[in-house]
Design a protein around this nucleic acid. Structure first.
Lengths: 173, 173
DNA sequence: TTCGCCATGTAAGAGGTTACATGATTTA
DNA sequence: TAAATCATGTAACCTCTTACATGGCGAA
């Protein structure tokens, strides 16, 4: 059992109407610390949700850019999300190539390991900076729960940065 | 692109021979902080790797328990793993139902949110205790890289516990 | 005597990725 | 003028999960 795109999309649309493109941007940005999926997952899922009557589509004609489809949650959609929230909590899932390489990497040289760690550090630092910016910019008009969650994301990436920094120091010593 | 069972299994078998059952136990235990997969993934993957000549099977006949198949990496397998390690590092993937619920959970009551956080706390505390025990027990005969990685896992879970504790405090205030 | 552990495996299907197709506008 | 952004979508494929099937031994 794992967290599905379906419910994350329903969650996003419960905060405001969005297009598939915007949803994917959200996956890459403000939500990236707990979910991501590709366009090939986003668009088919939106169509499926629409057929199930959980969301409705409005086409917005734009002259300067491609038309877009804005989706909004229906009452049935809200109920589906709330039912999901009443169900059992799914355990966090992590897949980390970096950690695997460190775990099995005694044959790889220490300089290679240091390289991987530095790459990981950069990735987590970038995400951290992004989330902090988001927090500062939108702090005023964010529900409390969202702020808590964002704080959690910031703590997560900060924790990773700290852990990886410590690893680098230990490697050098 | 995501970290596949194939390479994690190859990695595990590069440290010692193992059966499918033992591999799954490892997924749930010492490796759970960076990978997990079901039996339905483990056994077919082992068969596939064998057909590709990357691992070899030895059947061990046991009278008191079911027979088991012990797998060992071949030279070709070692090379495949090392080739993989030379390839580009895959970014960490996280899917967290807990975080999603917090993010979208302004409609859920605060007591519900607190409940989810407590469940998450318990899960991370349990994993943390497990990894610390592992570290203490096997410290002496672990390669340095494995120790570093385990330390990383401990730091990860400790970080989660800290972050979640802070969230709980903020909820109560 | 029931439950958990040991131990392997398969079939069906869900859920996802990758790569492709299209194309105008804006920014560097 | 090249690259990034906006914007949607599909088809083929891959990986993994779920549920099922089987069965003996040891502990509570």
């Amino acid at each position: 059992m794992q967290l599905q795109a379906k419910y994350v999309i329903l969650g996003l649309l419960s905060t405001r109407t969005m297009s598939g493109y915007e949803i994917k941007k959200s996956f890459e940005g403000d939500i990236s610390f707990f979910f991501d999926a590709s366009y090939g997952s986003v668009y088919p899922t939106l169509n499926k949700l629409e057929k199930e009557g959980l969301i409705v589509k409005t086409t917005i004609v734009q002259t300067d850019r491609p038309n877009k489809h804005e989706y909004a949650v229906t009452e049935a959609g809200k109920e589906a999300l709330s039912d999901y929230m009443k169900g059992p909590l799914i355990e966090d899932q992590v897949r980390s190539d970096l950690t695997m390489r460190l775990y099995f990497g005694q044959k790889a040289g220490e300089s290679e390991m240091a390289g991987w760690i530095r790459q990981g550090l950069e990735q987590h630092r970038a995400k951290l900076a992004e989330l902090i910016l988001l927090m500062e910019e939108h702090q005023a008009h964010m529900p409390r729960s969202t702020k808590l969650s964002l704080q959690y994301g910031i703590d997560y990436h900060q924790g990773q940065v700290n852990a990886l920094s410590r690893l680098l120091e230990q490697l050098d010593s």
